[in-house]
């Protein structure tokens, strides 16, 4: 479990550009959760996730992962970073090895694992992201954009983290590339019940499609936390924070405002179609 208590981070403290990036955040994320973090640029999302694997130290407050305080001065950063895998935005820009295999093996090698263990992990991670094994001996720079990104994600998965955090995993991809990554995350979550997945996203459609829970950040504070249904029910508050809800949710909320009797927790097209079909057929029968 991830437990964040009263987390505050002041950027460039004491300097003219001083800015409170995170303002007394407190929340918990249970094991095996699939959480999306949303918020507009500058809301503190990226700063928050960098705190979760101790790349940034808080100004005050505490973060505990499975009861271990990772913000303690004597915290073992190696263990923290092994347990919490962080995939940065545009992660394909950090590839550097001669072969895909070696790049995915970078994390496990740094962990000092045995040759055979590394091999197992690389194959497993490549499998998780759906990389064909014949690509492993290729140079990562010969691959397509979507494939490179999957290599980079595999490079974090091979460390077998308990918590996987991704910063905008679909940024810059076309719909097809985006669907591939999202589907793989869903599969990963289904196959590893204990793994907690947290991802930052600007796309409410993506969030509605794969996440279970949502954490909303606004101006460095935690604005909302709840299930996808609970959070998207507050479409007007979200809009005030410069965020959207999926188009289909917006349609439903507009119709409710127009006096149509329909449940508000609609956020996927498939579900909406069933609901609206029923509604229209019912009206037809009256």
């Amino acid at each position: 479990m991830i437990k964040v208590s009263d987390l505050t981070y002041v950027y460039q403290q004491g300097m003219p550009y001083e800015k409170t990036a995170l303002d007394s955040l407190s929340f918990e994320i249970p094991d095996g959760d699939f959480t999306a973090i949303i918020g507009h640029t500058g809301s503190g999302k990226s700063t928050l996730i960098q705190h979760l694997n101790a790349l940034v130290r808080p100004t005050s407050g505490k973060i505990e992962i499975d009861g271990v305080d990772i913000t303690a001065p004597n915290a073992d950063l190696r263990t923290v970073r092994k347990n919490v895998g962080l995939v940065f935005q545009y992660p394909e820009h950090q590839l550097f090895e001669e072969t895909v295999y070696k790049d995915i093996a970078f994390g496990p090698t740094n962990m000092g694992l045995s040759e055979s263990e590394i091999r197992n992990r690389v194959y497993e991670a490549a499998g998780f992201v759906g990389l064909p094994l014949e690509l492993l001996e290729k140079s990562p720079f010969e691959l397509s954009g979507g494939q490179k990104r999957r290599v980079a994600i595999a490079g974090v998965l091979s460390m077998q983290p308990k918590v996987l955090i991704l910063d905008e995993p679909t940024a810059g991809l076309d719909p097809k590339g985006r669907d591939e990554i999202l589907d793989q995350l869903v599969r990963l979550h289904a196959e590893n019940e204990k793994m907690t997945i947290i991802f930052v996203s600007h796309s409410m459609e993506d969030v509605a499609r794969i996440a279970k829970d949502i954490l909303v950040m606004n101006k460095g504070r935690l604005a909302m936390q709840g299930s996808v249904a609970e959070v998207f029910a507050h479409s007007s508050e979200l809009r005030e924070m410069g965020l959207n809800v999926p188009q289909i949710t917006e349609l439903t909320h507009r119709l409710i405002a127009d006096g149509v009797d329909i449940r508000p927790d609609v956020y996927t097209v498939k579900f909406a179609a069933e609901l609206y079909a029923e509604l229209l057929k019912e009206a037809e029968n009256v």
Binding site: D174, P175, Q247, I248, L251, V269
Partner: peptide, 14 residues
């Protein structure tokens, strides 16, 4: 492999 707006897809499904 491209998208259509969600409302277009909704009406398509209906």
């Amino acid at each position: 492999g491209l998208d259509v707006p969600q409302v277009t897809e909704l009406l398509f499904r209906l």
